[in-house]
Design a protein around this nucleic acid. Structure first.
Length: 409
DNA sequence: GCGATCAGAT
DNA sequence: CACATCTGATCGC
């Protein structure tokens, strides 16, 4: 009997250790990043379960649930209760979004919000031995969702960049001051990369501006027809669509008649006045981004998720716009950023993540020694992704100025 | 009763 | 167009 329980224990351990590779095979979008970097293994980022329970410091790149695994776990809660030095580092906005959910209240006194572009010294202390290591961390804007950042670490084990999830346009990297030292890019040992779309299939994704303009045009053409014409933005339950709300609000509102986007709740935005001023819980508006568990079904029967109707009982004329990623290959002809799906439903191009060519632009500028993918794009294997990342690593890139060349006699 | 996991959904 | 999340079933503690 005893032997059986030992065997069962060993089996469980094996199964647990295999989990990341199983997730990888199934090509889930859950980050396959296990939470730690080779160079600074005493810190954990965007993963808070398993080995990460022992970290000396935690980092959260943005407030999306697939980067918060274990963050409300009872084991971590217990660890914090007895710890004086363990903190969670993130941006001010991420802190705000996180604490707007009461389940994370126990982090309150252990969160250190950091300013963007502002190098901060952190001592990584082992509370049992007193052993300590210093790093300097800098938050760089990642353009993925409100509060999203990359983490740049500089310390005894070299300079490494953890990108979190990001959407940067070609050329943006050259304007990131803290990736530079003097006029040159820093010597970056490793990049831990958001490789969601690092696949030539996703060669090009229309720019944010192009997507936004397409949506503005569609909304404009609909709203001007009458006060009964309304738009439902069919957005997923996740942060990242807010710039859509603010831009549409600004575009279609004016001083005498402001237009705010209807959303379910304002709680998470209470300390973000620039966002707060463009959203509302008043249903009497022509643009809605509210949700309901059966909202698609509602829409099919010409209802908004919030149940809003016109004051005089006349039926509303509703169109839905569903933000979705659209991509184009290197040579494929670009079509519209708006696609009509049915009589009154549309898809609009929208991406939280950089395209293949945007990632290539980013990496070829940085030219790191190592690149580790945090995600395996669907339909790809880890080996394939590493193979196409190789040419962007320093050793293969043909950029040799940093490489030591011994004299040959 | 809670958490983890999975299938299925949008 | 393939992201990020939610719901409900099931399992184990």
């Amino acid at each position: 009997m005893r032997l059986i329980s030992v065997i069962r224990f060993v089996f469980m351990r094996l199964r647990n250790q295999c989990l990341p590779s199983i997730a990888l095979l199934k090509c889930l979008r859950m980050s396959s990043f296990a939470g730690r970097m080779k160079e600074y293994p005493t810190i954990s980022l965007d993963r808070f379960d398993r080995e990460n329970l022992h970290a000396r410091a935690y980092f959260l790149s943005h407030c999306h649930k697939d980067h918060m695994k274990g963050l409300k776990g009872p084991l971590l809660k217990r660890k914090l209760k007895f710890s004086l030095t363990v903190n969670l580092y993130c941006s001010f906005v991420t802190k705000e979004l996180l604490l707007s959910n009461p389940k994370y209240n126990f982090w309150q006194d252990h969160i250190v919000a950091l300013e963007l572009d502002s190098p901060t010294h952190i001592s990584l202390i082992d509370e049992t031995t007193g052993e300590s290591e210093d790093v300097v961390v800098t938050l760089l804007p990642a353009g993925h969702c409100p509060g999203s950042v990359m983490f740049l670490f500089e310390g005894g084990q070299g300079t490494v960049l953890y990108t979190g999830d990001f959407r940067l346009a070609a050329g943006d990297v050259a304007r990131m001051e803290f990736l530079h030292s003097g006029n040159r890019v820093k010597d970056i040992q490793s990049v831990y990369l958001d490789s969601t779309f690092f696949d030539p299939r996703f060669y090009q994704i229309p720019s944010r501006e192009a997507c936004l303009n397409g949506i503005k045009e569609l909304v404009q053409d609909w709203l001007i027809q009458s006060p009964y014409h309304v738009v439902w933005l069919n957005c997923k339950a996740a942060y990242g669509y807010e710039y859509l709300f603010t831009n549409l609000s600004e575009e279609f509102g004016c001083r005498v008649s402001p237009l705010r986007v209807h959303v379910n709740s304002l709680d998470m935005f209470q300390k973000m006045p620039e966002l707060l001023s463009h959203v509302t819980t008043d249903r009497a508006t022509q643009i809605h981004a509210c949700r309901h568990p059966r909202d698609e079904e509602f829409f099919r029967t010409n209802r908004l998720p919030c149940g809003c109707t016109a004051k005089d009982g006349k039926p509303l004329r509703i169109i839905s716009i569903k933000p979705s990623t659209m991509w184009f290959g290197e040579r494929t002809r670009k079509t519209s950023v708006i696609v009509r799906m049915g009589k009154s439903s549309y898809r609009a191009c929208f991406s939280f993540h950089s395209s293949y060519s945007e990632i290539k632009d980013f990496l070829s500028y940085i030219c790191p020694v190592n690149i580790y993918p945090n995600v395996i794009p669907m339909g790809r294997t880890f080996e394939e992704v590493t193979e196409i990342l190789k040419p962007l690593c320093r050793e293969y890139s043909g950029r040799a100025e940093i490489v030591y060349k011994p004299l040959v006699s």
